[in-house]
């Protein structure tokens, strides 16, 4: 190596900024560009399109129509139907998943022989696609009752619970509640994991101290453990809430675009795909985004403040 080359190399190593204010900015720069363009830019694009008259493929001359697409949505019965459906689904899904996951965590939190076995079985549904499970539930939740019953209805009959037989997702009024069943089935294990982590994060000393003070088991749960789980409960509600608002695969997997089970995401798909009404589709998508943002943004702020994701 020549002298100049050595000098050059030294210069390079010296120049390398280690503790500068810029830090590793250039290394994340490509990702920042990607997020800015594909997330924020495309949201802006979506918003822009929702203000136009691009309501069919044949529209040549693009005009801005203000918030017309949004005001049309409020008048659109299909949309309000989808919104009501989503609300029904959300209530049953959140309550059901919350309660079942919490009960499962109560059964396991103290540590019990075979815990690992149960835990891993309870969590496997999260690894399977909603579409595949939709295929099974589409079949098992068949609407035939009585003599023709099969699947879940037949099981209920045999268990002596025949009165619980149902037309499930085919029911005009109860379809969304039926839809919540497979959804709960799928995520209960996730809720269990979150609560279990919450329980295990409580120091044993707190429990012991209460026990020494003569508190009954129930009182220990009620006054010592449950209050400690409030942050976990918040997390669970946010996670379930945003999952629920976006529900799409599960519905399509079980009942396709079927009207009785249409939610906002499914309706958006139908509007864009079947009617090529991009202006309306983008408006629906944006309503969905605003709903999710209302839920998630405060949470992100909260997490950021408490640095909980450390």
């Amino acid at each position: 190596m020549s002298k100049t080359a050595v000098a050059k190399k030294e210069k390079l190593t010296k120049r390398r900024p280690i503790n500068s204010a810029l830090g590793g900015f250039w290394f994340v720069f490509p990702s920042i560009l990607a997020i800015v363009f594909f997330v924020y830019g495309m949201i802006a694009w979506t918003f822009n399109m929702s203000l136009t008259n691009k309501n069919s493929v044949s529209v040549r001359e693009l005009k801005y129509v203000g918030l017309k697409n949004y005001s049309d949505l409020i008048k659109d019965e299909n949309f309000t139907h989808a919104l009501t459906n989503l609300l029904k689904f959300t209530i049953v899904f959140i309550l059901g998943a919350l309660i079942s996951g919490f009960i499962m965590s109560l059964l396991l939190e103290k540590g019990i022989k075979g815990e690992g076995f149960f835990r891993s079985f309870y969590l496997y549904p999260m690894a399977i696609s909603f579409i595949a499970m939709g295929t099974v539930f589409n079949w098992l939740l068949n609407s035939a009752t009585g003599k023709d019953a099969g699947g879940v209805n037949l099981l209920l009959q045999k268990a002596g619970l025949g009165f619980l037989q149902n037309t499930w997702y085919a029911s005009p009024t109860g379809s969304m509640y039926a839809m919540a069943i497979p959804a709960i089935w799928q995520v209960a294990g996730y809720v269990l994991a979150l609560f279990l982590a919450g329980f295990r994060g409580i120091p044993d000393e707190m429990r012991e101290a209460a026990r020494v003070d003569g508190a009954s088991e129930w009182k220990i749960y009620r006054y010592v453990l449950f209050p400690q789980l409030t942050p976990t409960l918040l997390t669970v509600l946010i996670i379930l809430g945003h999952m629920s608002m976006k529900v799409f695969d599960l519905i399509v997997g079980i009942n396709g675009k079927g009207y009785v089970t249409q939610t906002v995401a499914v309706y958006m798909w139908q509007v864009t795909f079947d009617n090529y009404d991009f202006a309306k589709g983008t408006a629906i998508a944006l309503v969905l985004l605003i709903m999710v943002a209302f839920l998630v943004l405060p949470y992100l702020r909260y997490v950021n403040k408490h640095e909980a994701y450390r």
Binding site: S31, I35, F38, V39, Y40, G41, M42, I43, W45, T46, M49, H242, M245, K246, A265, M268, W269, T272, F278, G281, T282, I284, A285, L286, L288, L289, V292, A293, V296, L297, L300, N304
Partner: peptide, 18 residues
Amino acid sequence: TLFLFGMFIPYQAVMIPL
């Protein structure tokens, strides 16, 4: 934090431009 928000968005909100 701005990255994280991208994790929660309903992808419908970017789908048509995409």
